[in-house]
Design a protein around this nucleic acid. Structure first.
Lengths: 258, 258
DNA sequence: ACGATCAACTGGTCTGACCAGTCGCCTGGC
DNA sequence: GCCAGGCGACTGGTCAGACCAGTTGATCGT
């Protein structure tokens, strides 16, 4: 290594490790390592105090860290102790949501990212889907058409579920997870505008176009035509969101189209 | 809404909101909202006790949550109070790393996801890069060639930086961030194997191929040929990682190739 | 047999204390 | 005049002990 070849020993700056950190690390290790599987219980706080031989505040700070990571959940009065939840995707969603809310990334970036993720999961789904996937998707498309006239809420629900099933059909849970997190972040960021637009009267028109879009995607998946499915996904997102993006950012979305 | 039309009022189950949660939320709100910009300082804990009118343990648990989210950092004895860090991408990396370590997602999913993200950022970079980007990338490629024979560590560093610059050139900070987080997660997950393989003697051979790969990508970017750049990225990752993936998962990676 | 009661827990919060650091000021020696 | 050193007055990290409200399961009275 270059530092060593220059004659320096290369001491690492040692940063103090807090007691609550070591407690949290030990417990996290046990959870990630498979001891303490999801559903199992941690000992009570006062028992952990005895086992780790630290004060209760230290234990509690460690548990707070684990809880904010979604690894455990605690409930007052529960005689069984905190519940182990295991690794949950919600942390990802939260992190993405924060990133989106901060001006570190703009709405157009978020939508462009969603275009990329959706299109690629479509592409993979076209290649790797099972018959069961197709059956579920057909059913969802049917349900959307059925709900179309009278229940916009159920329609949106079926819509979201359609996308989730496609993402799962891609065979990549991680990709599906991120796609969902980004989807949620976009919805959070733009909800107000869209609800207004839907109330403005073009709702049923939009829903009708949405149904044909989903049918097109389904057909592309059935043909195992990944490129077509991906293009459909990108175009639909572009058409849907471009009007809500500042004009100077629209070029960015267009760049993600081809 | 369907629940209301069924005659139910639709009360939401109210879950108790802990004091530390409200404290953490208020502070997070201020940070995300732009008051309390990165670099600014929080009041001292005992001052927060007065302002929020809660006990110090409550304040400390709230600060722990914020710290574990990467929003703040505190140092004992600092008379200025905890430092605001703002939204950081490290949270994403951590969340992805945990997801990868748990069997919720396999190594092959992680690598496939990286193929998707890298390829798409290449594609966007080919379209949106600036002259300055090209200059920096050329310099990095030169540096890689220079380091090639005698400093594998610096070589890897330049390699990673090359990918980071390409991701930035895509113009989408979110995409770049995720790409980097996934990259780090892959490196964490596979590091042991790779180091062994590199020591086995094919290191310089791999580095030589890597240099030509980066030159190819650079050329594709210069030609604004997004499809070619994306394909190059996918193929390089496939060739590099396929041997380290269980045989039954290799088909998954192949599906991401086209 | 069963429903109300109660005691022994739980986690959430508060108080007050101590420690080891860190910083600013202030002083004494140059 | 200036600078080194020391002396407080802070900081965050940790601990101990207490109280509260909620949950639970056994116990008791009917």
């Amino acid at each position: 290594m270059s530092a060593e070849s220059a004659g320096q020993i290369g001491f690492q700056p040692v940063r103090p490790v807090r007691a609550y950190q070591r407690v949290a690390e030990q417990i996290e290790e046990r959870i990630l390592g498979g001891q303490l599987p999801p559903g199992s219980r941690l000992p009570a706080e006062r028992e952990l105090v005895r086992q780790f031989d630290v004060g209760r505040s230290t234990i509690r700070e460690a548990l707070r860290v684990l809880q904010s990571s979604g690894l455990i959940r605690s409930r007052p009065g529960d005689p069984l102790g905190a519940e182990v939840l295991g690794v949950s995707p919600d942390t990802l969603s939260h992190a993405l949501g924060r990133l989106a809310r901060s001006h570190l990334s703009s709405l157009s970036e978020l939508i462009q990212f969603r275009m990329v993720l959706d299109a690629e999961s479509y592409r993979l789904a076209a290649r790797l889907h099972t018959e069961e996937d197709l059956r579920r998707l057909t059913e969802l498309a049917d349900r959307m058409e059925e709900y179309l006239p009278h229940d916009p809420h159920a329609f949106s629900e079926a819509d979201a579920q359609f996308h989730r099933v496609v993402a799962e059909a891609s065979g990549n849970a991680l990709l599906a997870l991120c796609a969902r997190a980004v989807h949620d972040a976009v919805v959070d960021a733009i909800e107000g505008k869209l609800v207004r637009a839907k109330r403005a009267g073009d709702a049923s028109d939009w829903m009708r176009r949405s149904v044909t879009h989903h049918r097109d995607v389904l057909a592309a998946l059935r043909d195992s035509d990944g490129a077509r499915a991906a293009r459909l996904g990108r175009e639909a997102l572009f058409e849907h969101y471009a009007p809500h993006v500042p004009a100077q950012d629209r070029e960015r979305l267009r760049a993600a189209l081809d």
